[in-house]
Design a protein around this nucleic acid. Structure first.
Lengths: 330, 330
DNA sequence: CGTTGGCACTCGATAGCATCGAGTGCCAAC
DNA sequence: GTTGGCACTCGATGCTATCGAGTGCCAACG
């Protein structure tokens, strides 16, 4: 698409702009690798790059800034970035050390990722269907309220409140527990829909509630966000900060955003590529992680469009891979 | 402490500064209620208030800004503030409508509070000891890993990973479950420490792990933070925003901060009263809530020192009270 | 013909300076 | 004790000059 020299120039502009946040002039590019020409030639090339939509000038006679298209080309031209030694060491140390609740581990993973990149980090927990139910229990809380609790093989616990239509005593709830357990343990939680009807009408009425609740809750995947404070420093307009934080506060939005990006086969979404207007000045780097060969979740970082893409890509890739390994071994 | 007129003037200055964020001059105060004197007299009084440390001038010949001491006096002089009709209606509607998981309910409560005040809201969940254990279960996850799960009467679920020293089969874990359940159901979770030893050495070894884990996890109370994005608009320095967000991201810090303030018998902590340097420009309004007559948790809002205290105090008080009621009825 | 040094030009940033006005402190008079 | 009057302060605003990084263009060169 672009000849070698234009590519080198574009890369130099992007790299310097990422570092300094200042428009980059032709003079700064001449001693970049792959650019052994004078500044006048660079100027000509940069004018061409602007014409083609890779760069813009904030105003006449200023340096150039990459456009979304420019960042996109830069990212696509990147060869597989590798994580620097000390970061890699940090990741290794983290996954060697971490243990305990899966939720805490995922939350800590966001801190790790955020610390590596200085941007906000997100981790989408493994989906319901990625793991089997180990144990089921229905516990009465109030005369007409019960709690459905399922322990999954990965150590997570799912629960749903059941609003019962009539009073149900403990023994009946125990019967429901036994019935559900017999049909659910060893299967993914989504198999709840396939639990056969019970001949006992009381059991069956509770069962109805369980099925309904399972469908209601099935949609919301758990997501962990960390290091939002770090990302703040990358922006200077308070209004931008506010709108980005608003997005991060809405778990549903974050989950669907990540899913959407992954589904489009991207590992980077730049500005409007995110599909969210408040993220126009942001870029999102994501990587799915796999447990036992199956994609079950996603890790990612959210930062400004002038993000350190090589670093972020490398960090997200390595953390995603390690996280998958860690979860696979159980 | 201050005569009536000085109090009126101080109140007028605080109220206007809260609204405008601009230094308030003597001219703006003359037509405030309780101040029927000329601007010259107001000037004299304001000079006195400055001398006594209630006001400061950003620079000579500018209006005045309240100091922490000024805000403190203003807050202490406030009669019980009442919530405006529409907000009260909003609160009532929320608590009539809300149901389901207690965690979701508490998280939604932060959204409610944040929406009412336009500041960040925090809710500390009821402590472990405030509610009884309804059900206990120990589930094996891996050969040497098990999960201790306890369902509490308020619908919350506590869990802890157990790293076992040796392989323990299902039937042994079931024996532990039965043993623990017999001694724990009906008691608060803290009674775990008092579970008697078991004659069976295998059961006893697992039991040891359970006791250790219970102590480790006992400290961390759950806290929900919401509406951080809203609060951002109250500040203009990005660095301030960053440091405040950093605080809010650390659950332990938030919990101990709230506990500390409540323990000091305060319902408002202004600036340095919070005891946290990064919150020097913030104020915290808190209210404990009670379930069955016992203080079990706290709600609060965090905003700038130039916070709308009457509104925030009223909102926090009402939401705390309603939340307590809601949780009491189960 | 691509490359290059040269050059006029642009325009934001910075600094200096006058002006404006909100607000103050002080004082004499009521 | 209160008040109107008044000189004064000082940030904010606006204007102008200057500076300099960077540009576009062009003629000359290999």
């Amino acid at each position: 698409m672009l000849d070698e020299r234009k590519t080198s120039i574009l890369r130099a502009v992007v790299e310097e702009y990422i570092q300094t946040a200042q428009p980059v002039g032709s003079g700064h590019v001449v001693d970049a690798p792959g650019v052994s020409v004078s500044s006048a030639t660079v100027r000509n090339e940069m004018a061409a790059l602007e014409n083609d939509g890779y760069l813009v000038q904030p105003h006449t006679s200023a340096g150039r800034i990459p456009t979304e298209k420019g960042y996109r080309y830069f990212v696509d031209a990147l060869q597989q970035p590798v994580l620097d030694r000390s970061s890699a060491q940090q990741v290794r140390a983290f996954f060697d050390r971490t243990h305990g609740e899966i939720e805490r581990m995922l939350a800590d993973t966001t801190r790790l990722l955020s610390g590596l990149t200085d941007y906000a980090a997100v981790v989408v927990a493994p989906g319901r269907d990625a793991t089997q139910v180990r144990s089921v229990q229905i516990v009465g809380l109030a005369p007409t309220t019960a709690l459905f609790v399922a322990v999954l093989a990965d150590g997570s616990v799912e629960k749903t409140t059941l609003d019962l239509v009539a009073e149900v005593d403990e023994s009946a709830l125990d019967a429901v527990t036994v019935h559900v357990a017999a049909n659910l343990v060893g299967h993914p939680l989504s198999a709840l829909g396939g639990v056969p009807a019970s001949p006992d009408p009381v059991v069956e009425s509770v069962l109805g509630r369980v099925r309904v609740a399972a469908v209601d809750d099935g949609a919301d995947e758990h997501v962990f966000v960390g290091g939002a404070a770090r990302m703040v420093a990358s922006f200077e307009a308070v209004e931008t900060i506010r709108s980005v934080l608003s997005i991060l506060e809405e778990q549903l939005v974050v989950v669907s955003l990540l899913r959407d990006v992954v589904d489009r086969g991207l590992n980077v979404a730049i500005g409007s590529e995110t599909g969210m207007q408040p993220l126009a000045e942001c870029a999102l780097v994501v990587a799915p992680y796999t447990v036992d060969g199956e994609q079950v979740g996603t890790v990612g970082v959210l930062g400004p469009t002038r993000m350190n893409y090589p670093q972020a890509l490398a960090a997200v890739a390595v953390v995603g891979q390690r996280l998958g390994h860690r979860l696979s071994e159980g």
